[in-house]
């Protein structure tokens, strides 16, 4: 998946951008935690875990 843009605004968006979820970046969903949430993503060479609610701030489209 490729990041398109961050929805919303404010602190979370900024934090996500800073962690590398910038437009045009390739994001891969690695896995879900046992209770279904949070999710683990690979982005810019790192594995980052986000809750589903947080991840929904990142709009993606298939690469």
């Amino acid at each position: 998946m490729v990041t398109v843009a961050d929805a919303g605004g404010g602190g979370l968006t900024l934090r996500l951008l800073e962690m590398g979820f910038v437009p045009g970046t390739v994001v891969t969903l690695v896995k879900r935690a046992p209770f279904g949430d949070p999710l683990e993503f690979q982005v810019r060479g790192c594995h980052i875990s986000l809750r589903a609610a947080e991840a929904s701030c990142v709009r993606t489209e298939p690469a």
Binding site: G11, R15, L16, C46, H47, I48, S49, L50, R51, E54
Partner: peptide
């Protein structure tokens, strides 16, 4: 608090 947690 946002999770945004790196799994190093």
């Amino acid at each position: 608090p946002a999770l945004v947690l790196e799994l190093p």
